[in-house]
Amino acid sequence: MNGQTVTKPAKQIILDGLWYDNAIFRQILGICSTLAVTNNVLNTLVMCISLSLVTALSGMTVSALRNWTPRSVRMMVQTLIIAFFVIIVDILLRAYWPEMSRNLGPYVGLIITNCIVMGRCEAFAGTNRPWPSFLDGLFSGLGYSVVLLAIAAFRELLGMGTILGFAMPYFSTHWDKWIIMVMPPGGFFVLAMVLWLCRSVEIKRKS
C-alpha cells in the first residue's frame, strides 16, 4: 500500500453510488443475498439497511487500516472485517427482533459473501481515506437498496395486494392476485424488467 489517495468530491461519490455505478443494473453485483427476500417489503428494508451499514462501516475500517495491511493478506483481512460487522448485525437482530431474524434465515449471514461489500472495499476503500470510504459504502448500499425496494414493492403489491403489510386500496379488493410474483420466478422476472428499463434509459442517454 502506498497510501496514495484518489480525491473525488463527496457529491460525485454519492451520484456514482446511486446511479452511474449502481451495483445492480450497472454491474449486476450482489443480487444473491437479497433477491430471495424481496417478496416482502419489510424484510427487504431490514436487509438493505443491514447491507448498507455493513458496506459503509467495513469500508471505513478497511480504509483506516489500509496502510498497515500487507497486500498479500488483504482479502483475508477484508473478509474478517466484513464478517465482524455481519456478526454484530446478526446478534442485534436476534436480540431485538427475533421474528425478523427467523424470517431472514441465512440471508443475513450471506451479506459476508455479497459481492458489493467486498467490491467496494477492494475498489474504493483500499486507496481512499476513511470518511469518503464510509460515504462510498453507504451510497453504494443505498443505490442498491432503492432498486431492491422497488422490486419488493412491485412483488408484494401484485402478489399479495399489500405494501409493508398494509392492504392497498385497489389491489387488496379487486385485483386478482398474481401469486407467482411472491414465488421465486417473480423475483427473476421483476429484476429482469428493472434491468431492461434501466439499461434502455442508459442507452438512450448515451446516444
Binding site: 427473476f188 422476472f189 434502455s200
Partner: peptide, 14 residues
C-alpha cells in the same frame, strides 16, 4: 439491446 446479457439470462432463469 437493453435486455441483452444479464436481462435475458434472468428471464430464462425465471
Amino acid at each position: 439491446a437493453g435486455l441483452r446479457g444479464p436481462g435475458i439470462t434472468l428471464i430464462i432463469a425465471g
